[in-house]
């Protein structure tokens, strides 16, 4: 079932082994595995000790134990707590008994962008996958985990309030609010405290995602979001998704309404969100378009 291609190093092999679905890694330095993760495989050698030097032996043993301890901690963190993972997730339609999702496994690490490529002839799978990924629907069996915590143990306000940032084509933003109001609404909905004034954060985020750069006519607090051009609308949607500083950003078909150039801009924008102000995020793009998946990289085929 596992088919890993384009491997670039051993550490990638290790990661790929834990994924049951096809995963393709890219060599983009922005999305490559962080050095601290790759280090884990280098601390696997047995220490070299001299039989005649007991003090040296003791020191060496202590060093060895300490190194081993560090390694265990790092490995356990790396292996047990991916930022976001599916563990044998199955979703069965009750009447027909059909498995819409059947034993799906994948893991997503911080600081990387992933593309989940869903078949274009199975819209039900696409829809229900997103529903399960966002914690709206709980799986029939298996777990959706954020680090080590299952979504089943979390409140919706926690999952979608600040763990996940969502960019969905059905409800990208509220059309009746301005761009800034959309961000303020999202921040208020999280019930969290912010270190700076929310409106300052909102304006800053809109600036960071390049809002208004492609069309000077639109303003963050004057134009209703429903009247924004598609790319500007998606910029606001991305800004809204990261406004609560989530660890995971999930975007569904982010390029569906965009032209080729805008599509590239959008993918770059999403991939840029893997490294936030003070944290690394996992950005997951769900798409039926292989070209979009390829541009995002780290493709997980379902």
């Amino acid at each position: 079932m596992t088919d890993t291609t384009n491997h670039t190093d051993d550490s990638k092999d290790q990661i790929a082994e834990s994924i049951d679905y096809e995963v393709t890694f890219d060599d983009d330095p922005d999305t490559a595995i962080p050095a601290e993760h790759t280090e884990i495989t280098e601390i696997s050698e047995t220490p070299d000790m001299s039989d005649n030097d007991t003090s040296a032996q003791a020191a060496s043993r202590l060093d060895h134990e300490m190194e081993a301890e560090k390694r265990d901690v790092r490995e356990s963190v790396f292996k047990s707590y991916p930022l976001y993972s599916f563990q044998n997730v199955t979703l069965v339609e009750r009447k027909s008994g059909t498995a819409v999702l059947d034993g799906v496994n994948f893991e997503c690490q911080a600081g990387r962008a992933y593309a989940i490529l869903v078949p274009d002839d199975n819209p039900l799978m696409h829809t229900m996958l997103l529903s399960v990924m966002c914690g709206i629907t709980l799986p029939s069996s298996g777990h959706v985990l954020s680090k080590s915590t299952s979504f089943a143990e979390m409140a919706p306000a926690e999952i979608r309030g600040y763990r996940l940032g969502l960019v969905m084509p059905q409800f990208p933003i509220r059309a009746d609010l301005t761009a800034e109001q959309n961000l303020l609404y999202a921040m208020d909905a999280s019930n969290r405290n912010f270190l700076n004034t929310k409106s300052v954060i909102a304006r800053d985020l809109l600036k960071k995602v390049g809002f208004g750069t492609s069309d000077s006519a639109v303003t963050s607090n004057g134009t209703k979001a429903g009247k924004l051009p598609p790319l500007e609308m998606m910029r606001v949607s991305v800004a809204r998704a990261i406004s609560r500083d989530p660890e995971i950003v999930i975007a569904d078909e982010p390029c569906a309404t965009l032209s080729g150039e805008d599509s590239d801009t959008m993918i770059k924008l999403l991939k840029a969100q893997t490294h936030g102000h003070n944290k690394s995020r996992a950005v997951i793009v769900v798409t039926e378009d292989p070209q979009v998946a390829r541009k995002v990289g780290n493709v997980i085929k379902l």
Partner: peptide
């Protein structure tokens, strides 16, 4: 809409969350 059929909500074990 792929959910536009009579089994709209009927998935085993899952619940709205």
């Amino acid at each position: 809409d792929p959910l536009e059929h009579e089994h709209r909500h009927e998935f085993t074990a899952e619940s709205e969350h």
